[in-house]
């Protein structure tokens, strides 16, 4: 089954460039503004969009994304509303791949069987669930694959060659390489080390490899784009959004533009990359 993710990577391969993947939190700072932001991302240069599903206890996230999730929850965001947002986005855009990223509990409570069907119907292409390692594949990974969703696995600096095959076994769409050991928005990624890691993963799989965690600037995005099939930026966008809010964390007329402008600058960086990895 071909998803929008597969199609997009095939197109980018033809163009010989690396993907620029953006992360934003669903419902941050409120459901309407978040939808406007997501709608603005493809025009600003995002090749693919990861949408965070807010959760009270995001154990792999740093302070910025923790706060983004709490803003969204305070504004009344739920998993059901996140899927509604995806449906609304899909009315005008049927090609940009959408990946939901988050933690398992809200999906478990929604009901796995219902969730995979509803997500696919809404127009979701893939899932990244931080707290579901391959050891727990029967929970959501296998039902998601069956429903036609890509289950995108995280590989990390601690995933050694012995473990990689298990991590890659049920992965589809792309592999998300976490460039640093740590939480989102912490250390910055060293592109040389990342390049070696991407090459190592590519010895085990034909899937595209995208790199995230620790990429904040157009220069960093370009350096990663030269080593990988895609770079993911999240915390920097969430920080730009936060900086545009008023004192009560409400959206201002600047909010959508603040995120879109940074995305445009980062996309420029990625497009300036010499050559995307094979």
């Amino acid at each position: 089954m071909t998803t929008r993710i597969d199609t997009r990577f095939a197109e980018l391969a033809k163009q010989g460039r690396s993907a620029f993947v953006t992360f934003v939190m669903a419902g941050d700072p409120d459901p309407k503004t978040a939808l406007d932001i997501i709608k603005a991302l493809p025009k600003a240069g995002a090749d693919m969009i990861e949408i965070g599903m807010p959760f009270t206890d995001p154990m792999a996230d740093g302070p910025s994304i923790q706060a983004a999730g709490l803003r969204a929850l305070k504004a009344g965001m739920t998993l059901k509303k996140t899927l509604e947002m995806v449906r609304a986005f899909r009315k005008d855009d049927d090609t940009t791949p959408l990946v939901l990223m988050g933690y398992y509990n809200p999906i478990y409570i929604y009901g796995v069987d219902k969730f995979v069907v509803d997500a696919k119907t809404a127009g979701v292409d893939g899932l990244i669930i931080v707290d579901l390692p391959p050891e727990e594949d029967t929970e959501l990974c296998l039902p998601a694959m069956k429903a036609g969703l890509n289950f995108i696995r995280l590989a990390t600096p601690t995933t050694d060659d012995k473990r990689l095959p298990a991590v890659l076994a049920n992965t589809s769409g792309f592999v998300y390489y976490v460039a640093v050991t740590g939480i989102t928005g912490s250390a910055s990624a060293d592109s040389n080390v990342v390049g070696e890691a991407v090459a190592r993963i590519k010895r085990h799989t034909k899937l595209p490899v995208c790199v995230g965690f620790g990429i904040r600037t157009p220069e960093a995005a370009r350096a990663i784009a030269e080593k990988a099939n895609g770079s993911v930026v999240g915390t920097a966008l969430v920080d730009a959004l936060k900086a545009s809010l008023d004192a009560e964390d409400r959206a201002t007329p600047k909010t959508v533009g603040a995120v879109a402008d940074l995305v445009a600058a980062l996309a420029q960086g990625v497009r300036g990359a010499k050559q995307a990895a094979e």
Binding site: D131, P133, T156, D160, V178
Partner: peptide, 20 residues
């Protein structure tokens, strides 16, 4: 051996921690 007591327990952690 997978850490389950009935349906409870398990290993729901980020990949970074799994090897540890």
């Amino acid at each position: 051996e997978r850490g389950h007591f009935g349906i409870f327990g398990g290993r729901f952690v980020a990949e970074t921690l799994m090897p540890l």
